[in-house]
Design a protein around this nucleic acid. Structure first.
Lengths: 189, 189
DNA sequence: GTCTATAGCTGGATAGAC
DNA sequence: GTCTATCCAGCTATAGAC
């Protein structure tokens, strides 16, 4: 029960990163100012720099953290049908944190230098996971390459339009996409 | 052969809008300054305002013009298989002008007010065209709704990764997507 | 750990010469 | 029709009080 100060700082950090993710997703990274983020959290601008060295790192930490967590969730997945498991994991994870999901697919190009390289490597690793699954179903390497990109583009668009409390639940959406991707990737082996 | 002045202005206008499209696609609307655009064209900032009242209108004219031209191209399409014709028209048109295609799908959220409303209406109209095609193949309205969004998300991602002169030609890419979307939308009527 | 205040810069847009 | 020069609002990031 010690470290109340530390836990308070941790809570502030979470509020800052959550607010930044929401604002970046809604208006785009470049259109959001540090003042906007501070106002959303309810602190003054200077306070933000206790939690991030600069604005770029804020975006990088959000995106890299999201991608790493997404891959960790996949590691713990044990669906007997790999493609179905992948689709379900991707949608369940991303629909639970739509803001981070949106910026991880749409604001990547705002990163530069080492930050950009690291994130593009993470995304390539994740794409490779899906690519392997397609190859294991008997797809040719050429077809697997562009089908992988297509499936991810499709799945990454879902957090943009999906609304919690709308016509479909996240689980229903996932079921639909399992069926759709199953038709996209016929098993030939 | 009169109006050399006018035709010169028209050429400048084209260069400005092309440069803006390229830069917006590469770095995002908010990250590109009017100075950047002027430098890319080879004029000074003040000159840009002879061709657009402000930066927002520049983006709006690019996006709205692109969407209207895309729909006009579809009107002139006469493929016996509507879904195949739609996919081919969409890819042929967008891969011929990838910069405009990218901003028409990724920078829409930078528009506001009447500009945003008009563009979202155009996009909704375009989605409706594809939705009808899916319904005509016997898909249920619920399934057609999210399959429409999925197919467009998939197709709109292509100009992001496609490179002219790469492994596949635009026509080959279109063929692949015709086959893929055909599997996604089984004919049941 | 959060505040206020500010340095230093870059942005969109305009005015007026040519 | 394009230039130069400029206004001023807004930005990131930092310094130092509390």
């Amino acid at each position: 029960m010690a470290r109340t100060k530390g836990s308070s700082a941790q809570a502030t950090r979470t509020r800052i990163f959550d607010a930044a993710a929401r604002l970046f997703a809604a208006h785009g990274f470049a259109a959001v100012s540090m003042r906007d983020i501070a106002a959303e959290v309810g602190v003054q601008v200077g306070a933000l720099y206790r939690y991030t060295p600069d604005k770029d790192s804020l975006l990088f930490d959000l995106v890299a953290g999201h991608l790493r967590a997404l891959m960790a969730a996949w590691e713990g997945c044990d669906d007997p049908v790999p493609l179905a498991g992948f689709v379900r994991n991707h949608l369940n994870f991303n629909l639970a944190q739509p803001a981070a999901a949106v910026i991880s697919s749409r604001e990547l190009h705002c990163l530069q230098g080492p930050h950009a390289r690291e994130v593009f490597t993470l995304r390539a690793d994740y794409e490779t996971i899906l690519g392997r699954i397609l190859l294991d179903r008997g797809m040719s390497p050429e077809e697997a390459a562009f089908t992988t990109r297509s499936i991810l583009a499709m799945l990454n668009w879902v957090p943009v339009w999906f609304r919690t409390g709308g016509e479909m639940t996240a689980a229903q959406v996932a079921d639909r996409y399992v069926a759709l991707t199953d038709r996209m990737v016929p098993i030939t082996v």
